[in-house]
Design a protein around this nucleic acid. Structure first.
Lengths: 201, 201
DNA sequence: CGAAACGTTGACCGTTTTCAATTACAGTGG
DNA sequence: CCACTGTAATTGAAAACGGTCAACGTTTCG
């Protein structure tokens, strides 16, 4: 969904960039910490969690290599969510102060930054749409359609279904059952590492 | 949620701004139309719908006075959703071309624009969080908390519950039942035009 | 090799959806 | 001024669906 071959971050002088490795489970920042930096994933996967007052927490973003996160921190004093390394990871650290001056100085960079945000808006709206689909099977099918590449339409799985399930608002069990049903109906074909969508679904 | 007293749009010279009135139900643009403008609501309410392939459609945004929409059109050839006037409305029309040159010329404006997008990202993430709350009552309660203003915490209703219900991913019936239950439990107090939250919920 | 996570399936339960019926209310036109 | 119409609000009953709990085989990784 984020195929920016020329990302705005890459236009910044390398001097401002710091790489930070993260162990699996390590926290990059916690909800409420002073917002000092924004980030880009270079390796692994960063899980952004937002904690609600009731003690529940929500996956707010799953940042994968090439994706940026915590952009909103630029305009905020505190982080509004928590960042945890999902797997051994590494992130590029962009200090707020330097970034703000760089964006002010270069309007082209600022436009690229805005475009990245606009794309995130679209992505989030898509995820929101997905949640409006009540049926577990249809929701998964729609999710698969969105993830599809190539012909035959194929979804390559780079993480277990147990990780996907909460992202699309279902339990792992519901996902397994729906996948089994979809396959039995001949609407999908499952392989260990991928799913193929059958035509006419 | 969008209390920008000094909105970036207002910083544009008035010459670029056109006002367009819309009857109830009138379409501003359709999904797939060439993306030529972005908009700001000045009166009424604009409903942004996204149509899925299956024939279902989803409310993607409910733009109210002061809010902008279709910002992503700036970087896209086509509109990705449909804009329908929910009530008799009026919008400020911002032609893409003029806006792009204005943003390129004024980096401060561009930063404000980016900030607006970052706020939208946060808003969308909040809506996404809400959907992760399974219980209808808790979901509504959390939604109410997010809408709350003043003391005692009060939510002013400017539209019927039948409109709110799909926005938060519930049927109208479920909303009515939950509201009745919440009131019976003494967690909220309902009035014709508003809801008050009781302390300690 | 062993532990932890993943994948899978069954049974049961609770909640929401769905369908249906009724009341209330605002706007419309005769 | 009042039927008439459409929408909102409300409640009931039943059905459907996903969640939860549980058990177990499999895979992965240290």
């Amino acid at each position: 969904m984020n195929l920016d071959s020329l990302h705005w971050i890459e236009l910044l002088q390398t001097g401002d960039q710091l790489s930070r490795p993260l162990d699996k489970g390590e926290a990059l920042f916690r909800q409420g910490d002073p917002a000092t930096c924004i980030y880009r994933v270079t390796r692994g996967r960063i899980r952004l969690l937002r904690h609600l007052k009731e003690g529940t927490s929500v996956v707010v973003q799953l940042a994968r290599p090439g994706e940026t996160f915590a952009e909103a921190a630029l305009f905020s004093d505190r982080y509004h969510c928590e960042a945890i390394a999902d797997t051994p990871s590494a992130v590029t650290v962009l200090p707020k102060t330097g970034l703000l001056t760089a964006l002010s100085a270069d309007q082209g960079l600022c436009m690229d930054f805005a475009q990245g945000l606009a794309e995130q808006v679209r992505d989030l709206r898509t995820r929101l749409e997905l949640r409006n689909i009540r049926s577990a099977s249809e929701r998964i099918l729609t999710w698969l359609r969105l993830q599809t590449t190539g012909v035959p339409p194929t979804v390559w799985l780079d993480r277990p279904w147990t990780q996907v399930a909460p992202e699309i608002g279902l339990t792992a069990e519901a996902v397994y059952r729906s996948l089994a049903a979809l396959e039995q109906q001949g609407r999908i074909v499952r392989h260990p590492d991928r799913v193929e969508l059958c035509p006419g679904t």
